[in-house]
Amino acid sequence: MKHTLSLLVENKPGVLARIAGLFSRRGYNIESLAVNTTESPDISHITLVVDGDERVLEQITKQLYKLIVVLKVNDFTNFPVVERELALIRVSSDSNNRRAIIDLVEIFRASIVDVSEKELIIEITGDSDKINAFIKNLEPYGIKEMVRTGRIVMPRGMRLNSK
């Protein structure tokens, strides 16, 4: 099962190396990673998506806490969260299909950020499913390049926990 972990860490050199090293040497796999500053300059935020059962996740969490630089580990997997990724997609496009692509962009509330004779660059934000669906729809036109960020999450204000 995929888990989204949200880490608060000290903003110090080598922090990412410590965390990445921990995952690789203990045989865990990072599927997605996003690192950002926070409202506090001393603290950074890392969002990780990892795969594993409950026991693996418990170990990952405990091992992360052993790192002196890690302040807080939250598992947001079963929490109501706002989840976002961003992708930039370079897609082939000429006058014949441009309208169709613009329609798709509008449906997905993406935006075209660069236009040239034979291609477009499209920017889209959303959760993984939305971005995956958009990519699938774009594929027939020919995706030439794609850059995608890691996932970031934030718990919702109203925690509608069914329990």
Partner: peptide, 14 residues
């Protein structure tokens, strides 16, 4: 050496 010893120290500093 801080990179090398990361997995074999409790913590390290440069």
């Amino acid at each position: 050496i801080t990179g090398i010893t990361m997995p074999i120290t409790k913590h390290n500093y440069l």
